[in-house]
Amino acid sequence: MSDAPIRVLVCDDQALVRTGYVTIFSAQPDMEVVGEAGNGHEAVSAAQRLHPDVVVMDIRMPLLDGIEATRKLAGPEVVEPPKVLVVTTFNVDAYVYDAFRAGASGFLLKDSPPAELVAGIRTVARGEALLAPTVTRHLIGRFAERLRPADTARPGRADLVRALTARELEVLELIAEGLSNAEIAAALFISPETVKTYVSRILTKLGLRDRVQAVVLAYRVGLVTAAD
């Protein structure tokens, strides 16, 4: 694993909020704030120029909102997208749905404690989806048929799921339940490193970019359901 700090781009139209984020993130030994943006256009331009690992993105911004900026930076057609952590004051299903459909890897509210924001950056930087298990089940289960990123809508994807090993299917199901790698390891009595290997294999076999798309696919093919 690289010892390089997580490169963070902060995008919010309120200068005071940006300053707060920069102060918090810059104080972390494993993070480096590489830039700031005050609107969606600036966010896209800065991300393309600075190549951050994680973009902290507000939803409501002038000129170009955070959802569309996220789509431009992390949509299905983007080859090497940054991880986008959407942070907003609005706890609305539609915003979460739109954010993940646009390619976001995580969703937090602005009133989350600083420790949660910092942990959120680390989580999405590792390639894990950031949603509490209860939110994952409610939201993804509700919108699974509407969430159709280009990579998960291709014919034959259900056959690929059936081609997974029994253990890989177990891991995929637990991912869809919203469990972290550590929680999956405890549930299956294996090491977290082994879980990481399984997750990597699953994403590779299914041609998926991250855990969010894996969760969506698990619901869409019926491996898990909202009523489970």
Rank of each mutant, 00 (worst) to 15 (best):
residue 1 M to W: 04
residue 3 D to W: 00
residue 4 A to C: 02
residue 9 L to H: 09
residue 9 L to C: 09
residue 13 D to N: 15
residue 14 Q to A: 14
residue 16 L to F: 10
residue 16 L to G: 01
residue 16 L to I: 15
residue 21 Y to K: 00
residue 22 V to P: 01
residue 30 D to R: 00
residue 30 D to A: 04
residue 30 D to H: 01
residue 34 V to K: 06
residue 36 E to L: 08
residue 38 G to V: 06
residue 40 G to Q: 09
residue 42 E to Q: 15
residue 44 V to Y: 04
residue 45 S to P: 00
residue 45 S to A: 15
residue 46 A to G: 03
residue 51 H to G: 05
residue 53 D to P: 01
residue 56 V to T: 15
residue 69 A to P: 07
residue 70 T to K: 07
residue 74 A to N: 10
residue 82 P to D: 06
residue 87 V to C: 12
residue 91 N to A: 15
residue 94 A to F: 05
residue 99 A to L: 10
residue 101 R to Q: 13
residue 101 R to F: 02
residue 101 R to H: 13
residue 111 D to S: 10
residue 121 I to G: 06
residue 122 R to Y: 07
residue 123 T to S: 03
residue 123 T to G: 00
residue 126 R to N: 05
residue 128 E to Y: 02
residue 129 A to M: 13
residue 130 L to I: 03
residue 130 L to Y: 01
residue 130 L to C: 03
residue 133 P to A: 12
residue 133 P to K: 08
residue 134 T to C: 07
residue 135 V to G: 01
residue 135 V to F: 04
residue 136 T to I: 13
residue 137 R to G: 11
residue 137 R to T: 15
residue 139 L to A: 13
residue 140 I to A: 12
residue 143 F to P: 07
residue 143 F to W: 15
residue 146 R to H: 13
residue 150 A to F: 08
residue 151 D to V: 13
residue 158 A to H: 09
residue 166 A to F: 07
residue 170 E to A: 12
residue 170 E to Y: 05
residue 173 E to Y: 08
residue 179 L to V: 01
residue 182 A to F: 00
residue 194 T to H: 06
residue 196 K to P: 01
residue 196 K to L: 11
residue 204 T to C: 00
residue 212 V to L: 12
residue 214 A to N: 02
residue 215 V to R: 14
residue 216 V to R: 09
residue 218 A to C: 10
residue 222 G to H: 03
residue 225 T to L: 06
residue 226 A to P: 00
residue 226 A to D: 02
residue 228 D to T: 14
residue 228 D to A: 14
